[in-house]
Amino acid sequence: MKILLVDDEQELVSTLAERLEMRGFDAHWFTNGNAALQYAQKEKCDLAVLDVKMPKIGGLELQRQLAEMQPRMKFIFLTGHGSEEDYLAGTRKGHSYLIKPVDIGQLLAKINEFLR
């Protein structure tokens, strides 16, 4: 399973990717939306884990553009706030949210939901 991880906090996203790779996933990380979009133009991905608040292209806008490119891609959002507004905006569209700091167990459970 190929997973795209995008968060402007490099140490967070790179470590999370490494931990997913240890568990057998093909994880690719980026610190901005543009780099992730460039990658997704060339490579098919199964799932994207996106930070909601990022400079330039935020997670929700990035999701819209990635979904246009790859309609079968699934999405999990990471949020530092867990504000109700963001949560509702996401769940209405059928996406999953995780609140930072991320519990790897919860992330794996969400990934497994998509795998099923």
């Binding site: 906090e9 140490e11 967070l12 530092g80 930072k100 991320v102």
Partner: peptide, 21 residues
Amino acid sequence: LSHELKNALAVINENAGLLTD
């Protein structure tokens, strides 16, 4: 600032998790 702190905690959390892994 709370967002910045959340991010710092998230990085600490991932690195602690990595050590456990």
